Simulated assay, not measured.
Amino acid sequence: MKPFIVVPDGFDKSLFEELKKNSNLEVHPTSKVSQDELKTLLPKVNGLIIRSATTVNAELLELAPNLKIVIRAGEGTDNIDKTLCAAKGVKVANTPGANNNSAAEQAVALMMSCLRNTPFANKTMHEGKWEKNALTGLELWKKKVGIVGFGRIGQIVAKRISGFEPEVLFFDPVMEKSDLANTRKVTDLKEIFSTCDIVTIHTPLLPQTKGMVTGELLNLMKKDAILINAARGGIVDEEALYTLLKDKKIRCAGFDVFATEPLPADSKLIELDNLIMSPHVGASTEEAQFRVGEMAVHQINEFFVNNNLLNEVKGK
Protein backbone atom coordinates (compact mmCIF):
# COMPACT_ATOMS: atom_id res chain seq x y z
CA MET A 1 0.00 0.00 0.00
CA LYS A 2 1.40 3.40 -0.97
CA PRO A 3 2.13 6.00 1.72
CA PHE A 4 -0.69 8.57 1.88
CA ILE A 5 0.48 12.20 1.90
CA VAL A 6 -1.61 15.28 2.72
CA VAL A 7 -0.55 18.92 2.26
CA PRO A 8 -3.24 20.81 4.21
CA ASP A 9 -1.91 24.37 4.31
CA GLY A 10 -1.38 25.21 0.64
CA PHE A 11 1.53 24.66 -1.71
CA ASP A 12 3.03 25.93 -4.95
CA LYS A 13 0.90 24.39 -7.70
CA SER A 14 3.78 23.20 -9.88
CA LEU A 15 5.52 21.55 -6.94
CA PHE A 16 2.29 19.91 -5.78
CA GLU A 17 1.79 18.46 -9.26
CA GLU A 18 5.37 17.19 -9.18
CA LEU A 19 4.69 15.52 -5.83
CA LYS A 20 1.56 13.83 -7.21
CA LYS A 21 3.53 12.41 -10.15
CA ASN A 22 5.57 10.23 -7.80
CA SER A 23 4.22 6.76 -8.51
CA ASN A 24 5.47 5.55 -5.12
CA LEU A 25 3.11 7.85 -3.19
CA GLU A 26 -0.62 8.45 -2.91
CA VAL A 27 -1.18 12.21 -2.58
CA HIS A 28 -4.48 13.81 -1.56
CA PRO A 29 -5.83 15.53 -4.70
CA THR A 30 -5.88 19.08 -3.34
CA SER A 31 -3.04 21.06 -1.78
CA LYS A 32 -5.23 22.88 0.71
CA VAL A 33 -7.88 21.39 2.97
CA SER A 34 -9.86 22.76 5.88
CA GLN A 35 -8.98 21.67 9.38
CA ASP A 36 -12.33 19.84 9.61
CA GLU A 37 -11.63 17.94 6.40
CA LEU A 38 -8.12 17.16 7.60
CA LYS A 39 -9.58 15.41 10.64
CA THR A 40 -11.47 13.01 8.36
CA LEU A 41 -8.26 12.20 6.46
CA LEU A 42 -5.96 11.75 9.44
CA PRO A 43 -6.75 8.08 10.21
CA LYS A 44 -5.02 6.97 7.01
CA VAL A 45 -2.37 9.72 6.71
CA ASN A 46 1.27 8.60 6.69
CA GLY A 47 2.93 11.91 5.88
CA LEU A 48 2.00 15.56 6.44
CA ILE A 49 3.59 18.64 4.88
CA ILE A 50 2.35 21.65 6.84
CA ARG A 51 2.95 25.36 7.23
CA SER A 52 1.67 27.45 10.14
CA ALA A 53 -2.08 26.87 9.85
CA THR A 54 -1.97 23.27 11.08
CA THR A 55 -0.99 22.52 14.68
CA VAL A 56 0.36 19.06 15.36
CA ASN A 57 -0.82 18.49 18.91
CA ALA A 58 -2.23 15.67 21.01
CA GLU A 59 -5.64 15.89 19.34
CA LEU A 60 -4.21 15.58 15.83
CA LEU A 61 -1.82 12.80 16.75
CA GLU A 62 -4.61 10.84 18.41
CA LEU A 63 -6.52 10.93 15.12
CA ALA A 64 -3.46 9.89 13.08
CA PRO A 65 -2.27 6.49 14.32
CA ASN A 66 -0.47 5.76 11.03
CA LEU A 67 1.43 9.05 10.79
CA LYS A 68 5.15 8.54 10.19
CA ILE A 69 6.49 12.03 9.45
CA VAL A 70 5.54 15.72 9.66
CA ILE A 71 7.50 18.14 7.49
CA ARG A 72 7.21 21.81 8.34
CA ALA A 73 7.55 23.78 5.09
CA GLY A 74 9.49 26.51 6.82
CA GLU A 75 11.95 26.71 9.68
CA GLY A 76 9.96 27.30 12.86
CA THR A 77 8.42 24.17 14.36
CA ASP A 78 6.71 25.66 17.42
CA ASN A 79 3.31 24.54 16.02
CA ILE A 80 4.44 20.93 16.38
CA ASP A 81 4.56 19.07 19.70
CA LYS A 82 7.91 17.48 19.00
CA THR A 83 8.14 15.70 22.35
CA LEU A 84 4.81 13.97 21.83
CA CYS A 85 5.72 13.16 18.23
CA ALA A 86 8.90 11.48 19.45
CA ALA A 87 6.93 9.48 22.01
CA LYS A 88 4.61 8.25 19.27
CA GLY A 89 7.43 7.50 16.83
CA VAL A 90 6.52 10.33 14.45
CA LYS A 91 9.51 12.00 12.82
CA VAL A 92 9.62 15.80 12.49
CA ALA A 93 11.62 17.72 9.89
CA ASN A 94 11.76 21.28 8.59
CA THR A 95 13.18 23.14 5.57
CA PRO A 96 15.95 25.25 7.11
CA GLY A 97 17.21 28.26 5.25
CA ALA A 98 14.58 28.30 2.52
CA ASN A 99 12.78 31.40 3.78
CA ASN A 100 15.65 33.12 5.58
CA ASN A 101 16.10 35.87 3.03
CA SER A 102 12.39 36.70 2.94
CA ALA A 103 12.18 36.88 6.74
CA ALA A 104 15.26 39.12 6.86
CA GLU A 105 13.87 41.42 4.18
CA GLN A 106 10.57 41.72 6.09
CA ALA A 107 12.51 42.88 9.15
CA VAL A 108 14.32 45.49 7.05
CA ALA A 109 11.01 46.59 5.49
CA LEU A 110 9.49 47.11 8.93
CA MET A 111 12.62 48.94 10.01
CA MET A 112 12.44 51.38 7.11
CA SER A 113 8.68 51.81 7.55
CA CYS A 114 9.19 52.81 11.17
CA LEU A 115 12.04 55.16 10.35
CA ARG A 116 10.24 56.97 7.53
CA ASN A 117 6.60 56.72 8.70
CA THR A 118 5.70 55.20 5.32
CA PRO A 119 2.46 53.38 6.31
CA PHE A 120 1.12 56.50 8.02
CA ALA A 121 2.08 58.68 5.06
CA ASN A 122 0.29 56.31 2.71
CA LYS A 123 -2.83 56.23 4.91
CA THR A 124 -3.12 60.02 5.11
CA MET A 125 -2.55 60.42 1.37
CA HIS A 126 -5.43 58.04 0.66
CA GLU A 127 -7.52 60.16 3.01
CA GLY A 128 -6.83 63.17 0.79
CA LYS A 129 -4.47 64.81 3.27
CA TRP A 130 -0.99 66.31 2.83
CA GLU A 131 0.65 65.74 6.23
CA LYS A 132 4.22 66.57 5.21
CA ASN A 133 5.14 68.47 8.37
CA ALA A 134 3.87 65.69 10.64
CA LEU A 135 5.86 62.93 8.93
CA THR A 136 9.49 63.86 9.50
CA GLY A 137 11.41 60.60 9.78
CA LEU A 138 14.84 59.30 10.66
CA GLU A 139 17.69 57.89 8.56
CA LEU A 140 19.12 54.42 8.93
CA TRP A 141 22.55 55.72 7.92
CA LYS A 142 25.14 55.45 10.72
CA LYS A 143 22.58 54.25 13.28
CA LYS A 144 23.44 51.77 16.02
CA VAL A 145 21.50 48.55 15.36
CA GLY A 146 21.14 45.73 17.87
CA ILE A 147 20.43 42.24 16.55
CA VAL A 148 19.13 39.77 19.13
CA GLY A 149 19.89 36.35 17.70
CA PHE A 150 22.71 36.24 15.17
CA GLY A 151 21.93 33.02 13.35
CA ARG A 152 21.28 32.80 9.63
CA ILE A 153 18.49 35.39 9.51
CA GLY A 154 20.17 37.83 11.88
CA GLN A 155 23.32 37.70 9.79
CA ILE A 156 21.38 38.32 6.57
CA VAL A 157 19.79 41.40 8.16
CA ALA A 158 23.25 42.69 9.06
CA LYS A 159 24.42 42.14 5.48
CA ARG A 160 21.34 43.76 3.93
CA ILE A 161 21.69 46.95 5.98
CA SER A 162 25.49 47.15 5.71
CA GLY A 163 25.23 49.70 2.90
CA PHE A 164 23.76 52.16 5.43
CA GLU A 165 27.04 51.91 7.40
CA PRO A 166 25.48 51.13 10.79
CA GLU A 167 27.28 50.08 13.92
CA VAL A 168 25.92 46.60 14.66
CA LEU A 169 25.84 44.97 18.07
CA PHE A 170 24.64 41.38 18.30
CA PHE A 171 23.64 39.12 21.15
CA ASP A 172 23.86 35.38 20.62
CA PRO A 173 24.97 32.64 23.04
CA VAL A 174 26.39 30.52 20.19
CA MET A 175 27.96 32.95 17.72
CA GLU A 176 31.27 34.32 18.94
CA LYS A 177 32.16 36.82 16.23
CA SER A 178 31.20 38.27 12.89
CA ASP A 179 33.27 38.88 9.80
CA LEU A 180 31.16 41.92 8.92
CA ALA A 181 32.68 45.36 9.39
CA ASN A 182 31.51 47.47 12.36
CA THR A 183 29.88 44.44 14.01
CA ARG A 184 30.63 43.19 17.49
CA LYS A 185 29.20 40.75 20.00
CA VAL A 186 27.84 41.86 23.36
CA THR A 187 27.09 39.51 26.24
CA ASP A 188 24.46 41.59 28.01
CA LEU A 189 21.08 42.32 26.45
CA LYS A 190 20.87 45.46 28.55
CA GLU A 191 23.65 47.02 26.49
CA ILE A 192 21.71 46.46 23.28
CA PHE A 193 18.41 47.79 24.60
CA SER A 194 19.90 50.81 26.34
CA THR A 195 22.27 52.00 23.61
CA CYS A 196 20.85 50.99 20.21
CA ASP A 197 18.69 53.15 17.96
CA ILE A 198 17.08 50.05 16.47
CA VAL A 199 16.67 46.62 18.06
CA THR A 200 15.57 43.71 15.86
CA ILE A 201 14.68 40.23 17.17
CA HIS A 202 15.83 37.10 15.32
CA THR A 203 15.71 34.21 17.79
CA PRO A 204 13.60 31.05 17.59
CA LEU A 205 10.82 30.56 20.13
CA LEU A 206 12.28 28.20 22.71
CA PRO A 207 11.69 27.79 26.45
CA GLN A 208 14.75 29.97 27.09
CA THR A 209 13.64 32.72 24.69
CA LYS A 210 9.93 32.85 25.56
CA GLY A 211 9.32 36.18 27.27
CA MET A 212 13.02 37.00 26.96
CA VAL A 213 12.37 40.63 26.02
CA THR A 214 10.89 41.79 29.32
CA GLY A 215 9.38 45.06 30.38
CA GLU A 216 12.62 45.82 32.18
CA LEU A 217 14.59 45.57 28.93
CA LEU A 218 12.00 47.51 26.94
CA ASN A 219 12.08 50.39 29.40
CA LEU A 220 15.83 50.76 28.85
CA MET A 221 15.25 51.83 25.24
CA LYS A 222 15.91 55.38 24.08
CA LYS A 223 12.98 57.68 23.32
CA ASP A 224 13.66 57.68 19.56
CA ALA A 225 14.40 53.95 19.42
CA ILE A 226 12.63 51.40 17.23
CA LEU A 227 11.85 47.74 18.04
CA ILE A 228 11.37 45.13 15.30
CA ASN A 229 10.11 41.56 15.66
CA ALA A 230 9.81 39.43 12.54
CA ALA A 231 10.92 36.25 14.32
CA ARG A 232 8.30 34.64 16.60
CA GLY A 233 5.52 35.86 18.84
CA GLY A 234 5.94 35.24 22.55
CA ILE A 235 9.53 36.45 22.71
CA VAL A 236 8.50 40.03 23.58
CA ASP A 237 6.28 40.87 26.56
CA GLU A 238 3.34 42.34 24.60
CA GLU A 239 1.69 43.89 27.67
CA ALA A 240 4.88 45.81 28.44
CA LEU A 241 5.23 46.71 24.75
CA TYR A 242 1.70 48.12 24.71
CA THR A 243 2.39 50.36 27.71
CA LEU A 244 5.72 51.49 26.29
CA LEU A 245 4.20 52.51 22.96
CA LYS A 246 1.03 53.99 24.46
CA ASP A 247 3.14 56.25 26.69
CA LYS A 248 5.33 57.21 23.68
CA LYS A 249 8.47 56.04 25.48
CA ILE A 250 9.92 54.80 22.19
CA ARG A 251 9.38 56.08 18.67
CA CYS A 252 7.84 53.05 16.96
CA ALA A 253 7.72 49.28 16.72
CA GLY A 254 7.27 47.00 13.73
CA PHE A 255 5.85 43.53 14.39
CA ASP A 256 5.10 40.67 12.00
CA VAL A 257 4.50 38.09 14.75
CA PHE A 258 2.38 37.92 17.88
CA ALA A 259 1.90 35.70 20.92
CA THR A 260 -1.60 34.79 19.67
CA GLU A 261 -2.14 34.42 15.94
CA PRO A 262 -4.29 35.52 14.26
CA LEU A 263 -4.16 38.68 16.38
CA PRO A 264 -7.47 38.84 18.33
CA ALA A 265 -9.90 41.52 17.16
CA ASP A 266 -10.00 42.94 20.69
CA SER A 267 -6.20 43.14 21.08
CA LYS A 268 -5.08 46.40 22.65
CA LEU A 269 -2.18 46.51 20.18
CA ILE A 270 -4.62 47.52 17.44
CA GLU A 271 -5.19 50.84 19.22
CA LEU A 272 -1.59 51.98 18.84
CA ASP A 273 -0.69 54.48 16.13
CA ASN A 274 3.04 53.89 16.59
CA LEU A 275 2.95 50.14 15.99
CA ILE A 276 3.29 48.92 12.40
CA MET A 277 1.86 45.43 12.05
CA SER A 278 1.72 42.71 9.40
CA PRO A 279 0.04 39.28 9.69
CA HIS A 280 3.10 36.97 9.92
CA VAL A 281 4.09 37.40 6.28
CA GLY A 282 7.87 37.23 6.75
CA ALA A 283 8.11 34.07 4.66
CA SER A 284 5.28 35.03 2.31
CA THR A 285 7.15 35.73 -0.89
CA GLU A 286 6.75 33.72 -4.06
CA GLU A 287 10.45 32.88 -4.03
CA ALA A 288 10.45 31.64 -0.44
CA GLN A 289 7.29 29.59 -0.84
CA PHE A 290 8.77 27.88 -3.88
CA ARG A 291 12.01 27.11 -2.04
CA VAL A 292 10.32 25.66 1.06
CA GLY A 293 7.99 23.59 -1.14
CA GLU A 294 10.86 22.33 -3.25
CA MET A 295 12.73 21.18 -0.15
CA ALA A 296 9.64 19.58 1.38
CA VAL A 297 8.85 17.61 -1.79
CA HIS A 298 12.41 16.34 -1.91
CA GLN A 299 12.34 15.37 1.77
CA ILE A 300 9.02 13.50 1.63
CA ASN A 301 10.29 11.55 -1.38
CA GLU A 302 13.57 10.77 0.33
CA PHE A 303 11.81 9.57 3.49
CA PHE A 304 9.26 7.24 1.91
CA VAL A 305 11.13 6.17 -1.24
CA ASN A 306 14.75 6.02 -0.06
CA ASN A 307 14.26 5.65 3.72
CA ASN A 308 16.34 8.78 4.23
CA LEU A 309 15.35 11.37 6.87
CA LEU A 310 16.61 14.88 6.08
CA ASN A 311 16.63 17.91 8.40
CA GLU A 312 15.19 16.13 11.41
CA VAL A 313 14.08 18.38 14.28
CA LYS A 314 13.98 16.75 17.70
CA GLY A 315 12.02 17.80 20.78
CA LYS A 316 13.61 19.98 23.42
Rank of each mutant, 00 (worst) to 15 (best):
A53R: 15
G47T: 13
A58K: 15
V45W: 10
I49C: 10
T54E: 11
I69A: 00
I71Q: 01
T77V: 15
E59D: 15
D78T: 03
G74C: 04
T54G: 10
L41A: 11
L48E: 10
T54M: 09
G76S: 11
D78F: 03
K68E: 13
E62D: 13
N79G: 10
A58S: 15
I69H: 00
S52P: 13
S52E: 14
G76V: 06
P43Q: 12
I80F: 06
G74Q: 04
L42R: 04
N57W: 07
L42I: 07
N46W: 06
N57Y: 07
I71C: 02
L61W: 05
L63G: 01
K44H: 14
K68W: 00
T54D: 10
T77C: 14
A64Y: 02
I49K: 07
N79L: 08
R72M: 05
R72H: 03
V70G: 03
V45I: 12
V56W: 11
E75N: 09
E75D: 11
T55S: 15
P43G: 14
I80C: 09
N57V: 07
T55V: 14
T54W: 08
A73C: 05
G47S: 12
I50L: 08
L41R: 08
K44A: 14
A53G: 12
P65I: 03
L48F: 07
D78A: 07
L48G: 08
N57I: 06
E62A: 13
N79C: 10
L41K: 08
V70W: 00
A53M: 14
G76E: 09
G47I: 10
A73S: 11
A64R: 02
E75M: 06
P65W: 01
I80Y: 06
I80N: 09
K68P: 01
